[in-house]
Design a protein around this nucleic acid. Structure first.
Length: 279
DNA sequence: CTAGGTGCCTGATTGC
DNA sequence: TGCAATCAGGCACCTA
């Protein structure tokens, strides 16, 4: 499931591949993939545009196009983008194909059909609801502490809310909480500012390490970079998908629970529930 | 406000 | 063995 590091990996790859390229024609194979506008207007509106910039906001990819238009892509669960050389076999589950003027294709594939694309004049119409990006320079440790302390309830579900903090998903949230020994259900009001500063540091480390490793490709997942290669970060996960295996810090068997409806991996010894949750 | 549920989807996994 | 039921999961949306 692409989270911030996987999206960043794709952004960096695509930047090198398609900047300056012109869209000759767009083929929408599944109209549901286009959120805004209609599939027909989406295809027509992209024709003849050039890719001027590629960036990322949380898990959204942003492609700035000539003519002051903007293509936004969210991969959700199983979406992917790949640049195919002329004559390459089509990718399975391709939903939208951008035929480039130089003969290559940018293919958006998505078996689960959760991913969406937008063609807009103002990206803020879609991105404006997002909280600060988890790796943004402006998100200092102090800003992070204030951001978290503005909310109540359990820490993990809050970290997953994109309108609060953009970019974290299930895997890296679990990793960051493990690194600082905080239980996923720990109530925010029981965490000190020092706890939250440490969580901030762990979050940035986990994300930056995953980007350096070109993302995490889970055994049963499909994430690939723009070249079709798997990410190398799987072996660097401490708890993710390691139910029953030994905690890398204390050796206790790691457990899988459900928090906020999401599979959650943690160490029952290193990440104890706060006492205040039990009174 | 937060918590908890449902629907969207389909490949993989589980159950009988 | 084989088929059907269930699960996973990001996000929007709904209700309590």
């Amino acid at each position: 499931m692409p989270e911030l590091p996987e999206v960043e990996t794709l952004v960096r790859d695509l930047r090198g591949l398609i900047l300056g390229a012109e869209v000759a024609r767009v083929q929408v194979s599944w109209a549901g993939a286009v959120a805004v506008p209609s599939a027909r207007r989406f295809a027509a509106g992209l024709k003849g545009r050039r890719f001027l910039a590629v960036s990322r906001h949380g898990k959204f990819l942003q492609f700035d196009l000539s003519g002051s238009r903007c293509l936004l892509v969210h991969l959700r669960m199983s979406g992917h983008l790949a640049v195919l050389p002329p004559g390459a076999e089509p990718v399975l589950y391709t939903r939208v194909t951008f035929h480039l003027a130089d003969g290559r294709r940018l293919a958006f594939s998505d078996p689960r059909k959760f991913g969406r694309l937008w063609l807009v004049d103002q990206p803020d119409l879609v991105l404006g609801k997002l909280g600060p990006d988890a790796l943004a320079d402006e998100l200092t440790a102090e800003a992070f502490v204030r951001l978290i302390q503005a909310h109540r309830g359990a820490i993990k579900p809050l970290l997953l809310r994109q309108e609060v903090l953009a970019g974290l998903g299930n895997i890296y949230t679990d990793e960051a909480l493990f690194r600082v020994g905080i239980h996923p259900l720990r109530r925010i009001d029981t965490l000190s500012a020092a706890d939250l500063r440490r969580l901030y540091g762990a979050m940035r480390e986990v994300l930056e390490q995953a980007i350096a490793n070109r993302g995490t490709t889970l055994p049963d997942a499909r994430f690939r970079d723009a070249w079709g290669n798997r990410g190398d970060n799987l072996g660097h996960l401490s708890v993710g998908r390691r139910k029953g295996q030994a905690c890398p810090r204390c050796g206790a068997p790691l457990e899988r629970t459900v928090v906020g409806g999401r599979g959650t991996y943690s160490c029952p010894a290193c990440q104890r529930q706060a006492a205040s949750n039990c009174d």
